[in-house]
Amino acid sequence: MAAEAVVAAVDVGMTVEQIKATQLGMKALGAGIAVGFTGIGAGIAEMAIGSAAVGATAENKDIFGLALIFTVIPETIVIFGLVVALLLLFV
C-alpha cells in the first residue's frame, strides 16, 4: 500500500523526502484532529452537566463528590483522543 503510494507519488514528480515530509504532516494533522475534535466533544458534553452540577452543589454541598463524578465522565473521550494522537505521532 505504502509502496504503491510512493510509486504513484514519484510518478507525479515528488522526491522521497517530500513524500516522507507529507506523511509526517498528515500524521500531525491527524493527531491535531484527534485531540481537537474530542476536546470539543467533551466540552459540549461537560457544558450541560457542569452547570447542572454547580447548581446542585450550591443547593447541597454534600453531593460535591457525586457532582464531580458526573462532570468528569465525558472527559474520557478527550483522553482517548490524546492517546490516539500519541499513538499517531510516536508509534
Binding site: T76, I79, L82, L86
Partner: peptide
C-alpha cells in the same frame, strides 16, 4: 473496555 482504557489517562495527561 472504556473503564480499562480510561487508565491510559495516566500516561496521556502525564505526557501533556
Amino acid at each position: 473496555i472504556s473503564h480499562v482504557l480510561s487508565y491510559t489517562r495516566i500516561v496521556a495527561v502525564g505526557f501533556s
